[in-house]
Write a protein that binds this DNA or RNA. Structure first.
Lengths: 135, 135
DNA sequence: ACTGAGTTGACAACGATTCTCATTCCCTTG
DNA sequence: CAAGGGAATGAGAATCGTTGTCAACTCAGT
């Protein structure tokens, strides 16, 4: 069994690899695939296995330090994110993203769920468009 | 080169297979994966190749007759849908879905996009939860 | 029937992700 | 500081959904 912290949080060791992935995530502001991150680390001279990159990202997603979303063809892309709940405005051509948030949507989704008796509600909302620079 | 209709719509033949897939899609109201649809057809005695199921679904998505979305692990799931723009409330455990719509979200996303100068805007919004029956 | 383009199916190929497992690393304890 | 044990890693195999290949087939129009 996995040992846990006092509050049930699984213990994570700050290994060289995990630190490298965290730093990589801190170095850009848009969404990247696991493979891109792996490649980026390689170019920097940090030798980290691809499987480890996937594992690290998973943990970071579970821990809420990183956002995960899917491209249209189902590939997972990651981005570090602030700790508040929010959504993304993503540029279709250059991938630039802007975090947006607002109580309106939160309230609306909650209301819809209540209305239909759904519990344990979560939601995903992404807005795609062409950013000013790419027009 | 692919021949097209007068208005540029590619010509599609109403083959036995395509009709079978369309009927299958008409026979349920929630999201199903391509493989599930393929299996369903098999059980009905309709012999349709898996690749053909994928191809048919792709065409239906392009034609706007079917909605495509992704499960959390990136698998594509399909559902026939009405022609109005709407979103889905999806049960995490049984897959039941409810179509929901409302001008609030539409307005909000539009406003966010305008605010940041994004053009050609589209958005995806899915709400996940546990339906009354599954609690 | 003849023809040509659209379609199909079986199977190979692909690509992202996960699993396996022997090895290595990080911590804590003595 | 050496030892021990569980966590973490890496390399490659394995999964699995999805797409590509290509010869055989089917439909619509002549």
């Amino acid at each position: 069994m996995t040992s846990t912290d006092a509050d049930g949080t699984p213990i994570l060791r700050p290994t060289r690899q995990r630190i490298a992935v965290a730093q990589a995530m801190a170095s850009f502001h848009d969404f990247r695939s696991a493979q891109e991150i792996h490649e980026l680390l390689g170019r920097r001279g940090e030798r980290v296995g691809l499987a480890t990159v996937y594992r690290s990202l998973q943990r970071m997603v579970e821990g809420g330090e990183v956002d995960l979303l899917r491209t249209e063809d189902g590939e997972a892309i990651y981005r570090r994110c602030s700790d508040t709940h929010h959504h993304h405005l993503v540029c279709r051509s250059c991938g630039a993203t802007v975090e947006v948030e607002g109580p309106a949507v939160e309230r609306w989704t909650r209301a819809m769920a209540d209305e239909h008796g759904f519990a344990d509600v979560s939601h995903t909302l992404e807005i795609f468009g062409t950013c000013p620079a790419c027009r």
